[in-house]
Design a protein around this nucleic acid. Structure first.
Length: 718
DNA sequence: CCATCAGCTTTTTTT
DNA sequence: AAGCTGATGG
């Protein structure tokens, strides 16, 4: 067997980290320092030294990163069985395995953000808290912090002493009651319950320590207190804990991440070995210089250097644009140039602060016919039809899930309305039943009229029948549910909804292939943890568009960062408080900059439409920090006064409806563009006045007939 | 009971 | 610009 770890390729400090023996290890790894390679090699080295793969647990920040690491580990060692996952997935695994000790049922539902809001809304209403001051979103945010700090509802209730916290305590406690009744956990509960389990059950803790004798945690700067306690709990018995991270890349403080976890690692583990990886093997010195200048402005920071190893490259370009459209076109133009020079599109990325900023870029790319992917994974699972279908599946796995039950009822018209549901809920509450069980007994509810009662019973029976068979492959199950619940029939007219469902089924089929023991419960719990960056496809020969948060851990030859304006980056929400938030914004920009290997383009637009309003903006303070000298020439840039005039003029009331498409006529073979389907050619046009229909064959291969008045079609010239 | 529409609010990042 | 809510009409 050849050596799995070819040591000659590593620097001395990398080797120190890779071959460190037992005991705690802290790797402070700057951007581009080969951290991932070091971790993988360390795992291989451990195995080579006789550790069983089974006893190694590596925790990554996203599922995507876990998947990648699994592949890398498989490549560097023939041994199988290293456990690689995110904290959240690990918690699901633990909670399912030790459900009894955790006082849970293993088939728990995992709430998504929307479900959480629904539950919180209900909780607030139940507690009769004034809604104007306590919005569900705000309350959820507050409670999430408490949970991440491992404070239970009871604990918090005991210490809440002012009006706000007492109200929050009531809402927290009621919210948890609702979740328990639904046999549901939210994201934070996964961590909190696991942390409590480890704290309270020595037996479980020791079993897990024995199972995972070597623990590695990546992106440690972004762990919160709950995750910290979980890691500590697992490693306490053997002290084989290796954490890697970079305090300068901590960008999740807003989510409860505690940078102290990495800064104070040596306090927890006094015998810890510390290795610094400061050499950068990724970016040109030109790019690193900017990154260094920028991050130096952070005061709450341990000084650290970025040591360049690459040859000098191109200067970083800062470009001023008039507005977001010009900015988008400028980016598109440069990207096109690069591609013309032979650059593979998947080596190009565009980063922005907020997801909504992808739109103008997309439009510009479509116009220039540049291939791109928007990295936003959760969007797919948030679609109405997908959530609807998943609701049935959730009830099948977890009959206590009233949230899903209500959603399933409402997927399409079936003669059961809100009033009936309220009455059903009332009955269920009095009887202490789930909605499903109450539905089966709907005949007893006299307040509901007779035909509706029947419909409720039928519906509940259908669900119950479906629930009887939830084992085995998931894809056929989804198909069956789609057909038998009537959703397929109801969606017949909506082509793209049906298309999305088939996409869901294909994805499930893929899961069936991959999973060791595919089953519906596991599948649902897994997709609940699916995240944005999971949608990134490195193979896809396309330009990637994503937020800087999603860009964490990735790298590209050519990067564009757009929207360097006060209020956007740094974001307006970070401008107020103590300055900690501002420093985090700076770190976020730092992460963005250090993604680039060869070239970096940064843009700032003088004007931008934000939330439907035309705003005049000022350059981001961060631009000055990387050497931007202001605008030498702020007028007569060729930018038309007319534009400015029009934008500041009072907007005409759109109610007047000056026929948005006056006399729009389409011709056969005309090139058109649809917001969703992209480019296509007109195959047929039926002039029926207001109800005109246009048939378009899109480049995706699909042909669709669209109502002219609804379809967002634009004619493409040339 | 249900669909539609006008009017109103709106956070940014995500597991 | 877009999604949600409450009111209204069928």
């Amino acid at each position: 067997m050849t050596a799995a770890v070819p040591i000659e390729n590593f620097t001395d400090s990398q080797k120190e980290a890779i071959f460190h023996k037992d005991g705690p290890l802290l790797v402070l790894a700057g951007p581009g320092s080969g951290k991932t390679r070091v971790i993988t090699s360390r795992i291989a080295a451990l195995i080579e030294a006789g550790v069983r793969p089974w006893n190694i647990c590596a925790i990554t920040f996203t599922n995507k990163a876990a998947e990648e690491m699994r592949i890398r580990v498989e490549q560097s060692t023939p041994a199988q069985g290293v456990y690689v996952s995110t904290f959240h997935s690990l918690c699901v695994w633990i909670l399912r395995r030790y459900a009894e000790q955790a006082q849970l049922q293993p088939n728990f539902s995992i709430l998504d953000v929307k479900d959480q809001q629904r539950c919180m809304k209900e909780a607030i209403a139940d507690c009769q808290i004034d809604v104007t001051n306590f919005t569900p979103a705000r309350m959820l945010d507050y409670i999430s912090r408490l949970k991440n700090d491992l404070e239970s509802a009871e604990q918090f209730e005991a210490r809440a002493d002012d009006f706000f916290s007492r109200s929050a305590a009531k809402a927290y406690s009621r919210y948890q009651q609702i979740l328990t009744k639904n046999n549901a956990l939210d994201f934070d509960d996964l961590l909190l319950r696991t942390a409590f389990l480890l704290r309270d059950c020595e037996d479980v803790r020791l079993q897990l320590s024995d199972r995972f004798r070597y623990l590695l945690v990546d992106e440690y700067q972004d762990t919160n207190h709950a995750q910290y306690q979980i890691a500590k709990g697992i490693a306490l018995a053997h002290r084989n804990i290796c954490v890697t991270g970079d305090p300068d890349q901590s960008i999740y403080r807003w989510r409860g991440a505690d940078i102290e976890n990495i800064l104070a690692f040596e306090k927890d583990w006094p015998e810890a070995k510390v290795v610094k990886l400061e050499e950068n093997f990724r970016s040109t010195p030109n790019i690193l210089e900017k990154a260094d200048q920028l991050i130096a402005a952070n005061t709450k920071r341990k000084a650290k250097s970025l040591i360049a190893t690459r040859p000098k490259g191109n200067e970083v370009i800062i470009d001023i644009c008039e507005d977001e459209n010009k900015e988008a076109h400028w980016v598109a133009e440069r990207a096109e140039q690069l591609i013309d020079e032979g650059v593979n599109p998947n080596e190009i990325a565009v980063f922005y602060r907020v997801n909504s900023m992808s739109r103008t870029i997309e439009e510009a790319f479509v116009q220039r016919q540049l291939p791109y992917q928007v990295v936003r994974g959760v969007e797919f699972y948030a679609r109405k039809e997908i959530r609807d279908l998943l609701a049935y599946l959730k009830v099948m796995v977890n009959p206590q899930d009233d949230i899903a039950f209500i959603r399933a009822v409402g997927t399409h018209t079936r003669g059961i309305g809100k009033t009936s549901l309220d009455r059903l809920s009332h009955f269920a509450k009095i009887q202490g039943l789930s909605l499903l069980d109450a539905g089966l007994r709907a005949e007893e509810i006299e307040t509901i009229n007779r035909p509706t009662r029947k419909r409720l019973v039928d519906f509940s029976k259908m669900l119950q029948a479906l629930s009887e068979e939830t084992t085995g492959d998931v894809a056929p199950l989804i198909e069956q549910v789609f057909a038998e619940t009537g959703m397929e029939q109801a969606l017949k007219v909506e082509e793209d909804a049906t298309e999305n469902i088939s996409e869901l089924i294909s994805a499930a089929a893929e899961y069936d292939q991959r999973a060791e023991e595919p089953n519906l419960m596991d599948y649902l719990q897994m997709i609940a943890l699916y995240s944005d960056s999971d949608a990134y496809d490195a193979e896809s020969q396309r330009i990637s568009l994503m937020t800087m948060h999603a860009a964490k851990g990735l790298e590209f030859d050519h990067a564009f960062i757009i929207g360097l304006e006060e209020g956007i980056l740094p974001h307006e929400r970070s401008l107020n408080e103590a300055g900690d938030d501002l420093e985090e914004e700076r770190r976020l920009f730092f992460v963005g900059i250090t993604r680039a290997r060869k070239t970096l383009h940064v843009t700032y637009a003088r004007h931008r439409v934000v939330r439907g309003q035309f705003i005049r903006s000022t350059p981001s303070q961060f631009l000055y920090e990387i050497g931007f000298e202001g605008e030498q020439d702020s007028f007569d840039t060729g930018w038309d006064r007319i534009d400015r005039y029009e934008s500041s003029a009072p907007k005409p009331k759109k109610k007047l409806k000056i026929d948005s498409k006056p006399g729009q006529l389409y011709q056969v073979n005309q090139l058109v563009e649809h917001k969703k389907f992209g480019l296509g050619r007109v195959k047929e046009y039926l002039d029926l006045g207001e109800d005109s229909i246009v048939v378009v064959k899109f480049n995706t291969g699909n042909t669709k007939s669209l109502m002219v008045k609804y379809a967002k079609l634009t004619v493409v010239d040339g």
